[in-house]
Design a protein around this nucleic acid. Structure first.
Lengths: 354, 354
DNA sequence: GTGACCGATGTAAACGTTTTCACCGCTGCG
DNA sequence: CGCAGCGGTGAAAACGTTTACATCGGTCAC
């Protein structure tokens, strides 16, 4: 079918070993044979077969990525960070998404055995234990924003609690006392941590909890839209809406505009994640910077490092928690709110094209 | 190191062939040996090695995806569509991005040889010929939004010309005569086609071209921001800004809000792509629906079909052009503008989570 | 002058599957 | 009764690489 190393060897009058050495510069070869082999390889358009290569050396040059979903800027940023880091180590990404429950994740994990050198797993609705169980033995894995229970897996996550805590303190400092909160999905670990951070800050400030101010969402724009509708229809509506992620804040802003409720004058809105579009919203969204791309990059880097070292496999699992940062823009009504998307922050330096 | 089919065979007291048959149900096996093998495989947590499997059958079960970038909702939607379609055929996606020029694409293509069954290549800044040249012989490939010159590659693209043409006609019908246009990058094929469609509609309407109304962008929010700034500072500013993609429209909206220029009263804004966030913008963005996810899905489906058939390899290349659709929302100032993001359109039916 | 080492090459054994072929014992048909 | 066909199995040959080991001239040091 397609041209193999044997074809090249035959035409160049050398053994396959020599061709291999030329292609990988893995051992000295005379200059003359080197150029001859190279010329023939080029003529034949020979490209080594990845599967065979992976089988022979015990390395595939790919990282498996397992995600719950691909919808929205959050995941695209995450992937971007991972890809960037992987590429610098000459690896590529084998992506598989739409794995919410333990069964789905297990299936995806198995499908990747022997096709990747390591795994990056994001499964905020699945306990870490379930993931560890599905894992083929000895496959290096980094868990992103997972639920931990003393698992021996590397993991890296975001300081959801701290970020939400800081945001709520900020809102309290601005004088808000009734804060509407649009949560994420019930079983989502990120969502729960953000809710806890919010509640903790309220408690510490002595503000009584009002359960009617907490409405459930699912991290989609649509659920943010509905959440804002619910909250503003309350007999005693909140003076600010804190959406547990930016996508829901986008939805909330959309509803409020529609209902002709001025933001931030009548009700303020804040989000969480700082996805790229946040600073361009109208008004620019006050949010908690997570550095989604950085999160992905960090996870990939950690995995690649582990692969490079191949240190005592059972050594202490790395457990990183990335700090978050409050980003104050116009939507919360703070007087100091930055005026232009370019003022306080540099824009992404990449040069996107479509 | 890790457990192989031989281990299972040995412990089950059968040959590797039988184990293989059990795992793949590729041939009849006695029920008793079947259950025994299965039990042992489970105990040992045996998972067949993907590379070996791929080498043996000549099929990897993966689709290669080569993209210029990963920044923004456009690509996340594209990937989502591809992944959806691939998954239904039990395939996964090997993704590699940041390949703008011919050299980068060639490199990425080579890196995938033998690791994927086919290729989905999006390279709007690279001529189709360059891509075809880099391709290992016989690797089925679908080109997305490419530049064609009679290449024998399957390709699928969006009716950029028609979409832009329809949008400009819409704007003309609304009474606009001075239309500011923020283009995409100079060498980008999509960008050029959209610009041509816009100009053609102007010409047909007898509106003289004013080159000062065309400013160059690069499909990023930042360039849209700057474009709006340039256009509104003209001695004779336009009454509407047509951004060649939604990301730039987002940037433009952000600038206009900042400059306290009312949209659509003082200047209208329209975009292109209809990325998910468009309907949630403030005001909701009038744009051209491309169905980005559908584009990705269609491309993947085409590739998978080709793989399943394995028809006469050199048969006529498929060349699809996806229709576009004008989506009128509030940002263009049309009286009939839809009032809620939910009114005319169903929301994405997926259930994202983070 | 001889042994040691080195550069350049070839041979062949991995790597972990799938799959062809062959074989064995049946059953059923002519 | 002979033989075709079939269910069930194993041995071994692919699949296309990499790499350990062997070989063979040389050159250099002693």
């Amino acid at each position: 079918m397609s041209v193999t190393i044997k074809d090249v060897a035959r035409l160049a009058g050398v053994s396959v070993a020599t061709v291999s050495r030329v292609m990988n510069s893995s051992a000295p070869v005379t200059e003359t044979t080197r150029t001859r082999v190279l010329a023939i390889a080029r003529d034949l358009r020979f490209v080594p077969n990845g599967s065979a290569r992976a089988l022979s050396r015990q390395r595939t040059g790919a990282l498996g990525v397992i995600l719950p979903d691909l919808y929205g800027e959050f995941f695209s940023e995450l992937l971007r960070g991972m890809d960037q880091e992987a590429q610098r180590a000459d690896h590529s990404l084998l992506v598989s998404s739409s794995h919410h429950d333990a069964r789905g994740v297990g299936f995806a994990v198995r499908a990747m055995r022997g096709r990747v050198d390591g795994l990056l797993v994001m499964a905020p609705e699945v306990a870490g234990g379930m993931v560890a169980e599905a894992l083929p033995h000895g496959l290096p894995t980094v868990l992103l924003n997972g639920v931990f229970e003393g698992e021996a897996l590397h993991s890296i996550s975001v300081d959801n609690f701290g970020g939400a805590h800081a945001m709520t303190r900020h809102l309290l400092a601005l004088g808000h006392r009734r804060i509407g909160f649009i949560c994420g999905a019930a079983h989502n670990a990120d969502a729960k941590a953000r809710e806890r951070g919010h509640h903790a800050a309220l408690r510490e400030a002595g503000v009584p909890l009002d359960r009617s101010l907490d409405v459930r969402g699912d991290f989609t724009e649509a659920s943010g839209w509905r959440g804002a509708q619910t909250l503003t229809s309350l007999a005693e509506p909140p003076s600010v809406i804190f959406a547990a992620n930016d996508a829901m804040a986008v939805g909330a802003l959309s509803y409020l505009r529609e209902a002709q409720i001025d933001v931030p004058a009548q009700v303020a809105v804040v989000g969480f994640d700082d996805i790229p579009v946040a600073r361009f919203l109208n008004p620019p969204l006050t949010t908690v910077r997570v550095g989604v791309a950085a999160l992905g990059a960090r996870a990939a880097a950690l995995l690649l490092h582990e692969l490079a070292e191949r240190s005592p496999p059972g050594n202490a699992p790395h457990r990183d928690v990335l700090p978050t940062e409050l980003v104050v823009r116009g939507s919360c009504g703070a007087p100091s709110a930055a005026q232009t998307p370019f003022s306080s922050l540099s824009l992404p330096s990449e040069e996107p094209s479509q």
